[in-house]
Design a protein around this nucleic acid. Structure first.
Lengths: 260, 260
DNA sequence: TTTTTCAATCAAAATAAATCAGAATTGATT
DNA sequence: AATCAATTCTGATTTATTTTGATTGAAAAA
C-alpha cells in the first residue's frame, strides 16, 4: 500500500463510510497507511465539500434529509449492520483470514457476514452470494467475480429470495461457505424464515466447509427451522463473551470454535 | 522499450487511465521508460487537449460533468452511459411513458435502457432485469420489486451473464420487455455477444410486447447474431435523426416506430 | 484525575516548475 | 543523397511549492 494518491485516500474514506455509515480516524489510517494528521486534513476537506460530517473520533455520513434522493435509506439493513458493529467486524475479519487469493467462496446474507467485504475487497475471489449488498460492494470496489442466484431482492434484508427454484446454486461449488444464522443449539443451526432457509440449505449443500459467523447472542436464540446439524459445521467464529459451557458442548461435535 | 514515440507514450498514458481511471507519474515513467520531465510535459499537453486532468502525483480521467466526484468506478459503463446522454434520456423517457403503475416489465441491460430508472423510480413496478446497475438503483431509490436472473456479474457492462441456464426467466412473465440492441436491419434485431443474446432471447420469450430503445446509430450496425425477427417487435423508439427510409421499411412489418 | 482526540506548528519529504545543454528531427539548400 | 542550420524534443539539474508526518499543548471525554 505504497503512497496512495490523495484521491485514493479520499475514495477509501468514502467507501468505508458507505460501508459503515461511520468510520474512525484509526480505521482510515489503517486502511490507507497515511498518518493521522493527513487523514484529519482529508476529513476537513471532504467536510468542506459536503461529503461527510466530522464528529469526535471520526466522520459520519451526512444524514439524508427527509425525502431526499440519495439513499432511500435501505431502512432496516443499513441500520442493523451498525448494531454491535465492532464485534461484527472483528468476527468478519477473522473469518476473512481463512480465505486465500483465488478461492471460490459462498457468502450468506446478513449483517455480520456483510462486514467481510471490507476485508476481502483487495483479493481476487469468486464470490457466490445471496446478499445484494455484498454483491454491490464487491462489484464496484473489488476485482472479485460475483455470482448471484435467481430471485427477488428484498430491500429490507438486501437478500435475493427465491421459492421457485429447488436448488438455486445447482451450477456452483465452493470451497467454503461463510454463513450467518439466527440461532445455534448444541445440536443444530436454526433460522426462522422459510424463504431464507431454503437458499441457505442450498449454500451449505454446495460448499465443502461451512464457517459460521455468530456473535454471542446467537447462542441464546433458537429459530423455528433447522438449517443443518452442527456436525456439518467446520468452524464457528464468535466473540470472547460467549458462554464457555455451550461452546465446549459444541466442540464435542468436532467443530472448531474460535473466540476473538 | 527503447525510445517510445511521443504518440506511443500518450497512448500508454491514456490506456493506463482507461484501465484505472487515474495513474501516477511513476507508473507512466516505468511503463514508458521516458523521464519524469517528459511525462510531465505529456500530461500538460494531454490536459490542454482535454484528455485528462492533472492532479498532484499523477493524472485522472475528467470527471463526468454531472458528477459529484464520487463513483469514478465502473469505468466502462459509467462513462458509456454518458455518451449521447441526452438522446438516451429522451428515448428512455418516452419508453417509460408506456409503463403504468403496477406493471410487470423486463428491462434489458445497456446504457440506453439504464436511463429508464430515472423515470420509473416513482412508480411501484415489478421489474425483471439482467442489469445490475438498474437493479441497484431501483432497490435503493424506488419501491419497485426487482427480480434478477442467476449469473455472474460483469463489472464492465454491469450485466448478469449466464450460459448455464437454458431459460433464465422460466419462472416469470412480463407485459412489456424494454430492450436495447446492437443493430437493426429491416428484418431482424441483431447483437454480437452470444452470452448476452441468450439472456435477451429469454426476455423476449417471456414478454407479451417487445419495445426497442434504439438511437439512430443502431440502424447502421448489423450484429453477427440474430436476436429475433422484426415482426416480434411491438414498438421501436428512436430519435428524429434516424433515416426515414429505413424506418418506413420497418413500419411495413407492422412495427410502431416512434421518433422523438 | 487519566486518557483520548483535536488543532497548530514546523521540519522533512514529495512533487511541480523552470532552466539549460545535448540529441534528434526537420527542412531548406546544395 | 548529403550537408547544415534551425527547431523541437528530451533528460538532468536546480529551484520553488505543496503535502505530509511528528511533535506539541489545548480541549474534550471517561
Amino acid at each position: 500500500m505504497e503512497n496512495m494518491l490523495e484521491r485514493e485516500r479520499k475514495e477509501t474514506i468514502l467507501r468505508l463510510l458507505d460501508l459503515h455509515t461511520y468510520t474512525t480516524i484509526h480505521d482510515v489510517v489503517e486502511a490507507t497507511g497515511a498518518s493521522e494528521a493527513t487523514i484529519r486534513r482529508d476529513f476537513i476537506q471532504l467536510e468542506q465539500n459536503n461529503f461527510l460530517r466530522r464528529v469526535r473520533g471520526g466522520v459520519e455520513l451526512i444524514p439524508s434529509e427527509n425525502g431526499n434522493e440519495r439513499h432511500h435509506e435501505l431502512p432496516s439493513f443499513n441500520r442493523r449492520k451498525n448494531i454491535n458493529r465492532e464485534k461484527k467486524r472483528r468476527i468478519a475479519k477473522k473469518a476473512a483470514s481463512y480465505i486465500s487469493e483465488g478461492d471460490t467462496i459462498i457468502i450468506d446474507g446478513g449483517t455480520t457476514t456483510f462486514h467481510m467485504v471490507e476485508y476481502i475487497a483487495s483479493m481476487s475471489l469468486q464470490v457466490i452470494t445471496n446478499s445484494f449488498a455484498v454483491a454491490e460492494h464487491l462489484i464496484n470496489h473489488s476485482n472479485c467475480t460475483v455470482i448471484l442466484p435467481e430471485g427477488t431482492v428484498d430491500p429490507n434484508s438486501q437478500l435475493i429470495l427465491n421459492n421457485l427454484s429447488s436448488d438455486p446454486f445447482q451450477n456452483y461449488t465452493a470451497f467454503r461457505a461463510f454463513m450467518g444464522i439466527e440461532g445455534i443449539t448444541k445440536n443444530t443451526l436454526t433460522n426462522n424464515d422459510p424463504l431464507v432457509i431454503q437458499t441457505e440449505r442450498a449454500m451449505i449443500e454446495h460448499a465443502q466447509e461451512v464457517v459460521i459467523l455468530a456473535d454471542e447472542s446467537k447462542f441464546h436464540i433458537i429459530g423455528s427451522l433447522t438449517l443443518c446439524p452442527i456436525e456439518r459445521v467446520t468452524r464457528i467464529i464468535t466473540t470472547g463473551d460467549a458462554d464457555p459451557q455451550r461452546l465446549s458442548a459444541i466442540r464435542e461435535h468436532g467443530v472448531d470454535v474460535q473466540q476473538i
